[in-house]
Design a protein around this nucleic acid. Structure first.
Lengths: 216, 216
DNA sequence: TAGATTGTTAATCGATTAACAATC
DNA sequence: TAGATTGTTAATCGATTAACAATC
């Protein structure tokens, strides 16, 4: 009877959960047990009603006058994001950005662990980047199946992105975090998350130019 | 009479402009002169009507049966984003991520040029990162005013973010691209663009987990 | 109790999409 | 001309916000 319906959580809410998580964990560290939507909203610069809507999507209820219990809330959010057990991923493309992401603290606090890095350049293969070993691309398919990895971070140059992405999919990868500028053409069941740094820059640039022009 | 009203461009549209720009420039390179919303939509996986709405915000009109002239469209989008003349910026925090961003190709195609990098660690000061010199933080205020830079990229550890951001603002910086996890508390006229890698990761993770759970 | 907070239901807001006349 | 495309006006969709009764 479709009891186990996958509840529809709005994407903007999904984007706010990491912010909530950080705050909730910090409060837990400080020995707190409860937090109200009013308090969360104040710190994160949101509206209390929006916070409550987002909390409702986790299935956790609050207590009037008191707020929400930290622990179950943290657990529910991690569950919702699939961060409840470390999500292993591989990274392909050990350039500047790839290296930075491999060593990025802030991932390990959440589910993401880069289990292996792959690259084609002989001088990189066999070296360690921030504690993670670099393997040849040829070893990728076997390692993906051995490690049962389903996520890949793609930081190769644009001209190789499509080809590499295809080989990742063939190896069993289901989700690709694409940092290359290239749009990927992949089977529809593959989840592609694109992070285009130029897009964020455009946003800042447009807001800034508007502010500056306003003044003139 | 408020003739020169700053036209309201939706944020989602702003985010799409970099994608349009890349495509339009590529077509221009190939010797094309025109492109239709239908074609743009096909390549970028959007709806033609959405493309036309976005184009309308640039002020550039198209010709029925033919489409939009590439050159004025490119010019208008760059104008709108403030990318018409290279937007110099400084970068503070020459860690892994800072180094990667300093060398990131894809920025130079757009307005962004990192003019100088600042860091506090003595072994980095005076060195070059991807062709950009690293200066001591103490030299930042003078260089910001000399170079008339208004944008800064902030890639320092979370615990220093607030303090460094304040000194940037005091030096005359108006827009901050904040890569640190720390929320910044700054005067309201300062534009802060936050890029939180955990947020993108959350999005991918949540979509992937939903897909996987759907199958089970 | 009094009063702050939750959670529901409805209203608002803004972006996307649809329909279609105008155009070349 | 015929037909593909633009651009306008209206409808839809989804998220945010408001109002307020229920709760402890």
């Amino acid at each position: 009877m479709g009891e186990h319906q996958v509840q529809k959580v709005p994407l903007p809410s999904i984007r706010r959960y990491p912010l909530y998580l950080r705050l909730l964990k910090a409060h837990l560290e400080e020995g707190e047990k409860w937090i109200s939507s009013t308090e969360i909203a104040r710190v994160l610069n949101l509206k209390p009603i929006q916070v409550r809507k987002d909390m409702a999507c986790t299935g956790i209820g609050g207590k009037p006058r008191i707020g929400f219990a930290l622990e179950p809330l943290i657990f529910a959010i991690e569950q919702l994001l699939g961060w409840d057990n470390a999500t292993d991923a591989i990274l392909v493309g050990a350039g500047n950005l790839g290296s930075a992401l491999t060593g990025y603290h802030g991932f390990d606090q959440y589910g993401l662990k880069i289990a292996a890095v792959f690259d084609n350049s002989p001088e990189k293969i066999g070296t360690m980047i921030n504690g993670v070993r670099v393997f040849a691309m040829g070893e990728m398919p076997e390692m993906v199946s051995t490690l049962s990895v389903r996520m890949a971070v793609l930081t190769v140059p644009a001209e190789h992105a499509q080809e590499v992405a295809l080989s990742l999919v063939n190896a069993g990868i289901l989700g690709i975090w694409n940092f290359s500028v290239q749009a990927l053409n992949l089977p529809s069941h593959i989840i592609v998350q694109r992070t285009d740094l130029a897009v964020s820059f455009a946003e800042l640039s447009a807001r800034l130019i508007k502010e500056i022009r306003k003044k003139t």
